[in-house]
Amino acid sequence: MALHEDKFEYMAHSCNRNNLLEHLPFCSDIYQYSTNKGSLTPVNQLRDLGVTVCSDLNWTTHVKAIADKARQKAAWVFSVFHTRSSTTMLMLYKSLVRSLLEYCCPVWNPKKISDIQELEGVQRTFTSRIAGCQELDYWERLQKLSLMSLQRRRERYIVLHMWKLLHGDVSNDIRIEFVERPRTGIKAKIPPLKGTSAVGNQSLYDNSFAVMGPRLWNCLPARINTIETFGLFKERLTSFLTSIPDKPPVKGYSTQNSNSILDWRKDAATTDLWGGQDC
C-alpha cells in the first residue's frame, strides 16, 4: 500500500523490552517502514480517533490529557453558571465534563492507582462545589448525589459491551467465547496467556479488554447475565452495581481494596450479593 508520509504515523510495539537488538547500530533499520518516497520512523505516542496510544501501551499520557481537558471544561462551567444547585450542576457535569472522561473508556480503562486518582480527582473537585456537599468527603458525596465513581462506571461500560458481544450487537473481533452453565448462567472464556510470552507481558495481559471483559462479566450472577433485553439488562446491572460498595482510591484516603468489582467479589462481607456464586 502506498502511504503518504504526512498523513500516517508509525508505531512499533516490542514484546520484550530487554531485547538486546535495540542497542545494535542497525536496529533503526529494523524499526523503520519504507515508503515510495522515504520511510516512516516509529513514534512513542500518537492520537488515534481521540485516544492517545503509547508504544508501551501505558495510558498515563491519555489519562492526563483528558483530565486536563475536563478540568478546563469544569472551570468554564463554574465561571459561567452562578447556581450551585445539585440538579443544575449534575446536568452540566454529566453532559459537559464526565463525557470527556469516559470517551472510549473500555479500550483504555487504567489499572494504575495514580491514573485512577487522576480521573477521580476531576469528579471529586467538581462535586465538592455543589451546594450541600461541601462538608462531606468524596465517598459521602457520591452517595448523596447518587453518582458512581468513574472507576465503577468504566467497568460498567465494559460489562455492557460484553453483553453486546454476546448478542451480536457489535463485531466480536477479539473472538470472545461464551458458554452457558446450568447454575451460573452464561460465562465468558478467559483466553490463556501463551507460555512463551515474557513475564513482563503479564500486566498487559491482565489489563487487556480480552481478559478484563470476561472476568468482569463472570462476576455477574445468573439472574443478570441471562437477560436477553438490553434495556432490562442495563437497568438490572446498574441496580446490582449500586448495591456493591463504591470507594474509589483517592489521594489522602486509605481504601480497603482497589474498588474493582473483582476485588469486592473476593471480599467476605459482600459475597452474599452474588448468591454464593464464583466468578
Rank of each mutant, 00 (worst) to 15 (best):
K112T: 13
N201M: 07
E155I: 06
F178E: 02
Q134I: 09
G168L: 11
K111F: 14
W163K: 01
L160Q: 10
R129I: 00
S146Q: 15
Q151F: 02
N109P: 01
P221N: 09
P110S: 12
F209A: 06
L241M: 14
I158Q: 09
R153L: 07
A210F: 02
W163T: 02
W163V: 04
L142E: 06
N172Y: 01
E120T: 10
G121N: 06
W217Q: 06
D115V: 05
I176P: 03
I158F: 05
F233V: 01
V159L: 12
T238P: 00
A131K: 05
V211P: 04
K111C: 04
F178K: 05
E177R: 14
A131Q: 13
W217I: 07
R156L: 08
P245I: 06
C104K: 05
L142N: 10
T127G: 11
R152C: 15
S203R: 04
R181M: 02
T184F: 00
R215Q: 13
F230Q: 07
K144T: 12
H161P: 00
H167M: 02
Y157S: 10
N201E: 04
S197G: 12
K144C: 10
P249A: 13
K111I: 00
L166E: 05
L165H: 02
S128Y: 07
H161F: 12
C219D: 11
Q202S: 15
G185V: 10
T229W: 11
K112H: 10
R156M: 14
D206W: 07
L142A: 11
L232E: 14
K187W: 03
S128F: 05
L204D: 09
L142I: 07
R129G: 00
P221G: 12
C133G: 01
G185K: 07
P214E: 08
W217E: 09
L237H: 06
L193D: 00
Q117L: 03
L237R: 02
G231T: 09
F209D: 03
D246Q: 10
I176T: 10
P110C: 07
I186R: 12
T238Y: 08
Q123S: 07
N225L: 00
L216T: 01
N109Q: 14
E155N: 04
L160S: 00
K189F: 00
C105V: 15
E135A: 13
Q202T: 12
M162E: 06
T184H: 02
A210T: 08
L119I: 15
P192N: 09
L145H: 05
I227L: 15
Y205F: 14
G185D: 00
